[in-house]
């Protein structure tokens, strides 16, 4: 089985984010990057699928900035066999990213039997790439997957919908499966795994190599800014029974006129 995993490198959730000078993206110089947490589930699911199908290979693909390739190395250290990096700016839109992933997978020369991704990236939260990639490759896709079983090239997938209900899909390979938390527990990259990872192949392509041009951009980012600071909350002292009626009236009034909540 040719198993592909698409991963994204995102700022660590504890990193302090600031917009860059011209507002086209965030300041990336001092950021600590991590693998998008949902993509960790995708890597783990790919490795589990490989374990159940001897002779399979796991190829991990990433599109983005080249300052660090550590997340690809981490996936290799976890057990992936080889990696592909499409070197690009970090602020690609979802369409360009999907098109670059498609180009990279096709360029690898192996036809994908299954492509695992995270359901979303935690930095821009677009939730588009798996679906766009499925459209471009004309493959079935299921997202928000919390259960995945495979037998004879058929995947039985549990998908979470509103209210905690589960939908069950049966999908034939090849397919795109976008993973959610709960599908598995991602393994640690073991230290021997880290030592081995540096000897595993990592192919590098430019955007042009995988057929992506500037004209593919659908979204232009122009004005990144921090959310406005929240004004301090108001306190009302209603301990004194004599004032309670008037304070309730005041709070209700403010909820109507100021907070516009009721």
């Amino acid at each position: 089985m040719n198993i592909f995993v698409c991963i994204k490198q995102v700022p660590d959730t504890e990193t302090k984010i600031t917009p860059n000078g011209d507002g086209t993206y965030i300041e990336t110089t001092s950021i600590k990057w991590i693998m998008n947490p949902y993509d960790e589930f995708a890597v783990e699911q790919a490795l589990l699928t490989k374990q159940a199908n001897s002779g399979s290979t796991v190829t991990v693909v990433r599109v983005g900035g080249v300052k660090d390739t550590e997340t690809l190395r981490t996936a290799l250290a976890m057990g992936a066999d080889d990696a592909i990096l499409v070197e690009a700016d970090d602020n690609l839109d979802s369409f360009m990213t999907a098109k670059a992933l498609k180009g990279a997978i096709e360029k690898s020369g192996n036809s994908a039997d299954v492509i695992f991704t995270g359901k979303q990236a935690i930095d821009d939260d677009c939730l588009q790439v798996p679906q766009l990639l499925a459209g471009m490759l004309n493959l079935p896709s299921v997202s928000v997957v919390v259960g995945c079983e495979e037998a004879g090239g058929k995947f039985t997938l549990k998908r979470e919908i509103e209210g905690g209900t589960l939908e069950v899909y049966e999908v034939n390979s090849p397919a795109i499966i976008a993973c959610n938390k709960g599908i598995n527990t991602p393994r640690y990259a073991s230290l021997p795994g880290i030592m081995k990872a540096k000897r595993k192949p990592l192919a590098k392509h430019s955007l042009a190599d995988v057929g992506v041009a500037d004209s593919d951009r659908r979204v232009k980012y122009s004005n990144f800014q921090l959310p406005p600071e929240k004004p301090p909350g108001k306190k009302f002292d209603a301990m004194d029974e004599a004032n309670q009626a008037s304070i309730v009236a005041e709070v209700v009034g403010l909820l109507r006129t100021e907070a516009k909540a009721i």
Binding site: E70, R73, T74, A189, I194, K198
Partner: peptide
Amino acid sequence: SEQKEITDM
């Protein structure tokens, strides 16, 4: 970079 990965892990 390997030592950084070891640290992270």
